[in-house]
Simulated assay, not measured.
Amino acid sequence: MSFERRALLASPTAPAQAAAAELADSAEWVDAEEADVVIALGGDGFMLQTLHAMLERRKPTVPVFGMNLGTVGFLMNEWRYHGLDARLERAKAFKVTPLMMTATGIDGRVHQLPAINEVSLLRETRQTAKLEVTVNDRVVLPELACDGILVATPAGSTAYNLSAQGPILPLGSALLALTPISPFRPRRWRGAILPDKARIAIRVLDAAKRPVSAVADQREIRDIAQVDVCMDRARELTLLFDPEHALDDRITMEQFIG
């Protein structure tokens, strides 16, 4: 791959800003609106912020090559100052399809937000959340008592979903993980793996007494009555990785980490 117009974006952290200063004179950088590739410096959180900004600007087709100046850096490549041209030419592209969350508040207001990793519902108070779960218009759980529940994409299955003991989904598997968070009843339900064409609806039972918030990656809507989740295939994103650190291999290898 060859990219002439490049944009450089960096997290406000000191390491990312220092790296950006090193790269500043290595190329003629353009604004993200004009770029045909984005170089993102930071951690996974900054990568998610960058991708969400691209969705908001309706620029999801512009690929992003991230370099890790954060902590985990699962969605990032290794930070190196030299050889960026060669790395971009050899980079392997991965398509990531976001979820679309439609959250209806108890006040009737409707909020639509994309999620690249997961959509999660979380109890707001000490009281257990009670949720009704519907898949493709069929009620599959009339009442789930829990701390919450999440819907994760393959790209996000190694994040919050894995911490909640959900399954790791291979990239390209065309699956979603539906994972409960600290389920109380039914006590033995550990979640489900669904086709990514599934339409998932989660209704909050007794929302006034047992308030629940909905979170699409990093953006939260409080006091919701219902959340509907589906894949947003019209807004696929492209991430670029060094061949030796490709995203599909990282997700696979997470299954063997103790």
Rank of each mutant, 00 (worst) to 15 (best):
S2N: 13
E4A: 14
R6I: 15
L9Q: 07
A10E: 07
S11A: 12
S11H: 08
A14Y: 09
A18M: 12
A19H: 11
A21M: 13
L23P: 10
S26N: 07
D31K: 15
D36V: 15
V37R: 05
I39C: 05
A40V: 11
A40N: 07
A40G: 08
G42N: 06
D44G: 01
L48A: 04
Q49R: 12
T50G: 09
T50F: 02
T50R: 03
L51N: 05
A53W: 04
E56A: 14
R58Y: 06
R58W: 06
P60L: 04
T61A: 14
V64L: 06
F65P: 06
G66V: 05
G66N: 02
L69R: 15
G73S: 03
F74I: 06
F74E: 07
M76R: 01
R80Q: 07
Y81D: 03
H82E: 11
G83E: 06
L84T: 08
A86H: 09
A86M: 08
L88H: 07
R90W: 00
A91G: 06
K92Y: 05
A93E: 09
M101Q: 04
M101G: 03
Q112D: 13
P114R: 15
P114C: 13
I116L: 02
N117M: 01
E118I: 06
E118T: 06
E118K: 03
L122S: 09
Q127V: 09
K130L: 13
E132G: 14
T134L: 08
V135P: 04
V135G: 08
V135E: 07
N136F: 04
R138N: 12
V139D: 05
V139A: 10
V139M: 09
V139H: 08
E143F: 01
L144Q: 10
C146F: 02
D147R: 05
I149D: 02
G156A: 02
G156W: 00
G156I: 01
A159Q: 02
N161C: 15
L162S: 13
Q165N: 14
P167A: 15
I168P: 04
P170E: 06
P170S: 08
L171S: 08
G172W: 07
G172A: 08
S173A: 14
S173W: 08
A174I: 04
L175A: 12
L175R: 14
L178S: 11
I181P: 02
P183M: 12
F184Q: 13
F184N: 09
W189H: 09
W189K: 14
G191P: 11
A192L: 11
I193C: 02
I193E: 01
P195Y: 00
A201Q: 12
I202A: 05
V204C: 08
L205V: 08
D206M: 11
A207W: 06
P211D: 01
S213R: 12
V215T: 14
V215W: 00
A216P: 03
D217R: 12
Q218S: 09
Q218E: 05
I224Q: 02
A225D: 10
A225Y: 02
Q226N: 03
V229T: 10
C230K: 10
D232Y: 00
R233K: 07
A234Y: 00
A234S: 13
L237R: 07
T238R: 11
T238P: 02
L239G: 05
P243V: 10
E244W: 10
D248E: 13
D248S: 13
D249R: 15
D249K: 13
I251C: 04
I251V: 15
T252Y: 04
M253T: 12
M253S: 07
M253Q: 12
E254C: 00
E254T: 12
E254H: 06
F256C: 01
